[in-house]
């Protein structure tokens, strides 16, 4: 299988690549449109700030390419948020693949939402073998509200989208590559789609 991790200088690409290696899968890092288009599956990680990440995508013309992809696609953390329409972070227009807003946590709880929290309402093959209330690792200050595209939720304190699916685009707000055995299982499930 030809697996490509989108490398656009705004991601923990190394951690995702290592997690796949632990599953015995070699992935190619690339920002090249042809390479990404030809891949069987694409993983789109991301950490950092939305506006600067969009800038990195635009400078590589990836903002035009990514919405056209038809193979199974997995956005992780900021990589999930970038698939949405607009983020409150820096008032940034995003890729608009999934028509959802990205909002800042307005709560008395600590922000960033950092640490291990539970998945609920699992409804996707992405979560095969994963139990309700399984713990996964989060670190983020912005979130996507629950919507018709939500395939798992987490509460902080209100429910938000832990994962999304729209057509071939899957996405997780948590970090599967840092979520122990449960995270590995979720990556494995994506590879099996």
């Amino acid at each position: 299988m030809d697996l490509v991790i989108v490398d656009y200088k705004a991601g923990n690409v190394q951690s995702v690549q290592f997690a796949l290696e632990r599953l015995g899968v070699q992935a190619t890092l690339s920002s090249d449109a042809e390479t990404i288009k030809a891949a069987d599956k694409v993983i789109f990680p991301g950490v950092g700030q939305a506006a600067s990440a969009m800038g990195q995508l635009k400078s590589r013309n990836l903002d035009k390419l990514l919405p056209t992809l038809e193979q199974p696609f997995f956005g992780v953390c900021l990589g999930m948020q970038l698939l949405c329409r607009h983020s409150e972070e820096g008032d940034t227009d995003l890729l608009n693949i999934i028509p959802l807003p990205v909002k800042h946590f307005e709560t008395d709880l600590k922000v960033p939402h950092m640490g291990w929290n539970q998945l609920e309402g699992l409804q996707s093959p992405l979560f095969n073998g994963i139990n309700e209330k399984e713990y996964v690792y989060y670190v983020h200050s912005y979130y996507v509200p629950v919507s018709e595209f939500t395939i798992a939720q987490t509460s902080y304190p209100e429910p938000f989208s832990a994962a999304l699916q729209y057509k071939n685009f899957y996405a997780a707000q948590f970090h599967p590559e840092k979520s122990g055995p449960a995270g590995s299982q979720i990556l494995k499930n994506f590879l099996a789609l």
Partner: peptide, 10 residues
């Protein structure tokens, strides 16, 4: 790098 390669927690 070695740590990141081998452990699956932050």
């Amino acid at each position: 790098r070695d740590i990141a390669r081998h452990i699956d927690i932050p």
